[in-house]
Design a protein around this nucleic acid. Structure first.
Lengths: 157, 157
DNA sequence: CATCATTGCTTGATATGTCAATTATTCATC
DNA sequence: GATGAATAATTGACATATCAAGCAATGATG
């Protein structure tokens, strides 16, 4: 009982904890995206993600969105409904497979996509510009490695 | 109207979007931490964060926790109550300033802290080990730069 | 072609996070 | 030492996310 757990304090130094830093970065990036989207288009981040995927042609159906993004099906379903109600998105069930929800942007939806995209791309460039060229070259690779490592569930052998 | 927005498709390639990758990494890290904590201690991530901050001596009060972490005051308040009800944490209002909520781990709380910490430290080491030494050297610096850049709100000049 | 499993999406219940308003206490100033 | 501002924590209302169950349509199997 004499040894205080504080001995391991340096290891617990929060600023050096990977997860903590990622959470903080995620928060900061989120807040930035939310602010930009609210200012330039009056939409939420979840709404933008769907508009961007459909607008760019990256996704055509709810299924595509679920597969190519990390948006949960429930969120897709509800956000899509909101976008439809707001007149930014129109949907249909193709006769080839009537389970599928096919989406296209309305004119208004496309207008929003096209005015918002440059802002979001400029933001992306600004973020990458904050890094040194060598850092830019490796950052996505690092993320990949960390994600793989995060899939492990055992560390004490 | 002839030019499809797909022209900018390569720029929109999701896997190259910083925010998207950070979100995905955050999710993966979260899921890992949740799984480990559930298995070794039966506690949630929010609970662990508070136990760790108090157990390590990094924080002594709710205020400390709010300042040194990114946990919102409301979450601190409610999680603290839960931990108290579970008998892992005890609180008191110091006579020097009776607004402040001072916390200490109970014996049971400390036991959980001490059995959980090695697992979380091993996890942290395993994560860092997934990176090359040069990468480890720069990753926190990169996070710092990106966070600073994420504080900006204007990009189109 | 009947049956069962699978797929795509939706929904309700629950958990979690966020924001604003509120309370109690302390601090600062006159 | 009374008054108003600031601080620490709490609470309720609301938004958002997650999970499991459900439904409808399709596919696969005998």
């Amino acid at each position: 009982m004499s040894a205080k757990a504080n001995d391991s304090n340096h290891e617990l130094e929060l600023t050096q904890f990977l997860t903590y830093r990622v959470v903080k970065l995620h928060h900061a990036l989120n807040a930035q995206a939310v602010a930009v989207l609210d200012r330039v288009a009056g939409i939420t981040l979840a709404q933008w993600r769907i508009i961007a995927l459909i607008g760019s042609g990256t996704a055509k159906t709810a299924r595509d969105i679920a597969q190519k993004s990390i948006i949960a099906p429930a969120v897709i379903s509800r956000t899509t409904r909101t976008l439809e109600d707001a007149g930014l998105l129109s949907t249909r069930r193709p006769s080839s497979d009537r389970r599928v929800l096919e989406m296209t942007l309305t004119d208004e939806g496309r207008r929003i996509y096209e005015t918002t995209l440059p802002h979001m791309q400029a933001r992306q460039r600004a973020l990458l510009k904050a890094l040194a060229p060598e850092e830019r070259d490796v950052i996505f690779e690092m993320f990949e490695k960390l994600e793989t490592a995060a899939a492990r569930r055992e560390f004490m052998e």
